[in-house]
Design a protein around this nucleic acid. Structure first.
Lengths: 195, 195
DNA sequence: GTCTATAATCAGATAGAC
DNA sequence: GTCTATCTGATTATAGAC
């Protein structure tokens, strides 16, 4: 990995973000030093500051980009249709996205408390946008009588929490295929909301 | 809080554990210094080492005690009966316990990666014991035909993840009473497993 | 049992050479 | 664009006074 002096802006920038993501996901933001990130990339710690003003901004930019990417991906995946069809699209999207990008999602959930108050507000707003998408679907289904829910807000939190669980246990090449896992979670979600 | 020299072993020990729990829950193990814990208790950092050999052991002892306390509490709360009755007892216990001791549970989930490998193994074993209790109930219900589950293992993870969600949003004095929250989660859990 | 003082190390971040 | 060297301050943990 070690490398001599030279210009590699195009690869070093993304490499830093990738290394930081991997290390933050594994050990947590506070436990990872700038020197560790640099070593993973193959540069010295000082070189990192050509790409980020400080460690906090490195975390914040990463989380903001990840949340925005997730929101954009959902905007592309969402469909028109009945509340039940919309919910199925969401469950399948969410499970798939969490399996594909578990480090990003893991950091987005675990490192909220390591953001400065101002940065936290920004990320929290994006997170609420994402939650709002689910709450809209559940509200539509509740109003139309398609869903039976004791409490829309709690159901939203419960559904998301249930689905998020997949990222804590899923490992590539495990017992269950991605499609099978999608199907299992969709079966459970359907039962949770059914009228 | 500040206090002069004197002997207060009976109160300082518990005070350290309480302060560490609160601070670890709020900011994370790696982001909390021994000085911060000491300041919260009203002593100097050196005094902490009369009560713990090091910071890692402080975390490990706390997590082990918390997991064991949770397991013991469940042993007292669990009942005989049909799988459905046993599941109801578990859901109500779990939600109640998470609401009552959210800091303990939060630390137990968030700080696993800050344990040394040996300590992690111990805590992980206790966590698996707890999960095993749920998996047993679901297996019984599946075998008897009371529950309809696509995959017992995934259902176990999904149920626990869904219930754990309560600790991320519940706040004392909020919109919903504890009994109401128990009921809502039990309704959702029941729908998730119903045949 | 707690304090003060300190050792030893490591953190984030910057300056200037190449 | 990266490195070496360094600044400044914080960290865990210990030793010895009281």
């Amino acid at each position: 990995m070690a490398r001599k002096t030279g210009s590699h802006a195009e690869i070093t920038g993304p490499a830093i973000r990738a290394a930081a993501l991997r290390l933050f996901a594994r050990s947590g933001y506070a436990a990872v030093s700038m020197r560790e990130i640099a070593a993973e990339v193959g540069v010295r710690a000082g070189a990192l500051y050509l790409y980020t003003p400080d460690k906090q901004t490195l975390l914040y930019d990463m989380m903001r980009d990840n949340m925005q990417r997730a929101l954009e991906a959902w905007q592309l995946a969402k469909i028109d249709g009945t509340p039940m069809q919309q919910l199925e699209a969401f469950v399948r999207f969410h499970v798939n996205y969490h399996v594909d990008r578990s480090d990003e999602i893991f950091v987005a959930y675990m490192e909220l408390r390591n953001l400065t108050p101002e940065n936290f507000e920004q990320i929290e707003a994006l997170r609420r946008d994402y939650e709002g998408e689910v709450e809209c679907i559940l509200t539509d289904g509740y109003m139309s009588g398609d869903f039976k829910l004791a409490d829309i807000r709690v159901s939203t939190m419960a559904l998301i929490a249930m689905l998020n669980g997949v990222m804590t246990w899923y490992r590539e090449g495990g017992r269950l295929s991605r499609v099978r896992i999608q199907q299992i979670y969709w079966d459970m979600a359907k039962q949770m909301v059914q009228a």
